[in-house]
Amino acid sequence: MEVRDVHHAYRRRVVLRGVDLRLRAGVLCGIVGENGAGKSTLLKILSGELRPSHGTVRHGGRFGYCPQHVVLNDALTVRQHLRFLQKAYRLTDLRYAEQVMDVLGFAGYADERAGILSGGTRQKLNVTLALMHDPQVLLLDEPYQGFDWDTYQRFWDLAVRLRDAGRSVLVVSHLAYDTERLDELWRLDGGLLHPDRVEGA
C-alpha cells in the first residue's frame, strides 16, 4: 500500500497535512495518536470510505478493513454474515474464516444473531469479516476494543503470524501499548506521520 501526500480537512478544520506512508509486504506497522489526531480519518481514506482533499492511496492487492465501530447486521447470525461476505469476496468455502474464529475463540457462536452477542464477540466477528479472505493488506482500526486479555494476546499472535506469512498489517490505536510487537511505529501528530521508537527493538 502506498500513500502519497494525503491532506484532509473537514470544512476549515484541517486534520491531515500531507501524510506519506509505504506499507511493505511482511510488515506489522502501527500508527498511534491522541484522541482527535485524525487516525480514523486516515484509515477511512486508506480504506476508500472517504476521499481525501488531496493526495493518493494505492493498494497492491486484496485488502481487508476492520472499522473502529463494529459494522454488522444485527438481524443476521454469525454464519449468515460469513456467507454474505463469502459471496462478496468470492470464496468457495469458509475454512479460513473458521480458522480465524477458532483463533479468536468464538466458533461456538456461529448460529447466534449478531444483535444479541456481547460487545467483545461482536468485535471478534468484526475482525473476522475483515480477515476471512486472507488479505494481503490488512487495516485495523482499534481492533482489540472489548477483548479480554486472553483474546487480546491471541489477536496479537494472529497479527504476527499474518506478518510472518508476508501480509502487511497496519494497526491504528490511540494507545502505544505493545509497541514491541510492531516492526514500524508511526505517531500521527499535527496532521503528519512521525517515525516513533519501537520499544524493545
Partner: peptide, 16 residues
C-alpha cells in the same frame, strides 16, 4: 487499486 480475483479463491489457503 482493488483488482477483483477473476476466479473464485479456493479454500486451500490456511492460517500460517
Amino acid at each position: 487499486a482493488q483488482p477483483p480475483d477473476p476466479k473464485p479463491r479456493n479454500g486451500d489457503f490456511s492460517l500460517p
